[in-house]
């Protein structure tokens, strides 16, 4: 059992959809006996296995919510489940042939399998062209999210 798991979702080869994975990579040095940092993948349902064994779960994924590119959205689960279900996530049901992020979290809630604290960061994406290049605004947002997650960790560790 770790105190906190940080899972970055997305596809590192599909433009801005990489951002969740890249946030996780930036936080890898941050992993400790109490904090585990994972690169999630394209399938939301695997998240159900990955989210086991922690009190606090922090998720990062690209999102398409018609906001300005690079906008950082923060959601608390399960309170915001309905709202996240309306957005198109990088890890979405239709883009990955899989159970999407919103469906996986809803299922975990239904089965009472959610960790005590779950926070989801969505970063508004610009392009999903194949390749490694992030939109400048998304790249900037990535740094913002990394900093916010450090603050989250402090607040939970002192809770």
């Amino acid at each position: 059992m770790v105190k906190m798991k940080i899972i970055g979702l997305g596809n590192p080869f599909m433009g801005d959809d990489a951002v969740g994975v890249l946030v996780a990579r930036q936080l890898h040095t941050y992993a400790s006996a109490h904090i585990s940092v994972l690169e999630g993948g394209l399938s939301g349902l695997s998240l159900l296995h990955d989210m086991e064994g922690t009190d606090t779960l922090i998720l990062i994924d690209a999102v398409h919510s018609h906001s300005k590119v690079g906008t950082i959205l923060r959601f608390t689960i399960p309170q915001d489940l309905e709202e996240i279900g309306k957005l198109a996530w990088g890890t979405s049901a239709s883009s990955t042939h899989a159970f999407g992020l919103a469906e996986a979290l809803t299922l975990a809630h239904t089965l009472e399998a959610l960790p005590t604290h779950v926070v989801l960061f969505g970063i508004e994406l610009g392009h999903i062209q194949k390749g490694h290049v992030l939109s400048p605004a998304v790249s900037k947002a990535m740094t913002g999210v990394v900093n916010q997650i450090r603050l989250e960790e402090l607040s939970f560790s002192h809770a």
Binding site: M14, D17, A62, H64, A88, W89, G90, S92, S94, S95, T96, L125, I128
Partner: peptide, 10 residues
């Protein structure tokens, strides 16, 4: 038609 989403459509 499928729901509008990120990666194209079917």
């Amino acid at each position: 038609d499928m729901m509008a989403r990120v990666e194209g459509e079917g």
